[in-house]
């Protein structure tokens, strides 16, 4: 599915990702953990193609295509989804309208007809209910005056509507109380199947109690310093980043 080889990337001439290798297969959930400034969010931006991030070397292969050659929207339409740590507020744009626009962008890319209004309404209603998102919220401007929890739920709603093959969750747990965390995690777990993959970026092991990863990687200073299974996350919680990085 996703194959990152010796990736080096910079922003404003400062190298942040310094030779990162990561391979994610269909149906797998990977967790990427690391301290602040280790390059976690940068990796998510580089993979989604945000402007200002320079690729110095290395390659990223997504479903057999060179991901780095694609535009931001093409990557999205190919099935790469990024759940933002800080979702953008877009004043004046109604949430439900935005959702429909995004769904249709993907359908068009796939050569499909636009979604029927009724079908869309039904689809959004059912997905929103699953995430306990009120219908009222869909009428509001996208992410404007949403609470932190509402914004994160909105990201998961978009993910479930776009049904990506590869989803990157960038610190989705930050700013969530325990109830919201459960709802968000359940949303993710429902989407999990043998055909899609997840990269869960997080600071704490807490989220991984709800979204059980197949693999755990620890990132420090732009490189993966240690990989393992779920037990690595537990070990990390116990010993802290510094200790683990040393033993790596």
């Amino acid at each position: 599915m996703l194959n990152i080889k010796d990736l080096k990337a910079s922003i404003e001439d400062k190298q942040i990702i310094k030779g990162l290798d990561l391979s994610i297969n269909k149906g797998e959930v990977h967790a990427l953990m690391g301290p602040n400034g280790s390059g976690k969010s940068t990796l998510s931006y580089v993979l989604s193609g945000k402007e200002g991030y320079e690729i110095d070397s290395g390659s990223v292969d997504f479903k057999g295509k060179n991901l780095l050659e694609l535009d931001v929207d093409e990557r999205s339409n190919e099935g790469l989804f990024l759940a933002f740590q800080y979702p953008m507020e877009i004043p004046g744009v109604q949430t439900s309208f935005f959702l429909k626009t995004a769904i249709n962008a993907k359908r068009k890319y796939q050569g499909l007809e636009e979604i029927d209004a009724l079908e869309f309404a039904k689809l959004v209603k059912s997905k929103a209910e699953e995430l306990s998102i009120s219908p009222d919220m869909l009428k509001r401007d996208l992410n404007v005056n949403y609470s932190g929890g509402e914004k994160k739920k909105q990201e998961i709603l978009q993910m479930s509507l776009l049904n990506p093959e590869m989803a990157i969750l960038d610190e989705t747990d930050s700013g969530l109380d325990i109830d919201a965390l459960k709802i968000v995690s359940e949303g993710v777990n429902k989407l999990r199947n043998e055909n899609n993959s997840f990269l869960v970026i997080t600071h704490y092991q807490r989220l991984l109690n709800y979204i059980k990863p197949d693999f755990v990687h620890i990132i420090a200073d732009g490189k993966i310093v240690k990989s393992g299974n779920f037990s690595l996350a537990l070990e990390l919680e116990e010993k802290g980043y510094e200790e683990i990085s040393k033993t790596a």
Binding site: S48, K50, E51, D71, V72, D73, R75, S76, N77, F81, L82, F84, P87, M88, E89, I90, V93, F98, T101, A102, A105, K106, Y109, Q158, L162
Partner: peptide
């Protein structure tokens, strides 16, 4: 905002039009 819209699959002109 542009990046966010494009990450959701909108091309740049559509994203500008929307915003």
């Amino acid at each position: 905002q542009l990046f966010y819209c494009m990450q959701r699959g909108l091309n740049s002109e559509d994203a500008v039009g929307l915003i």
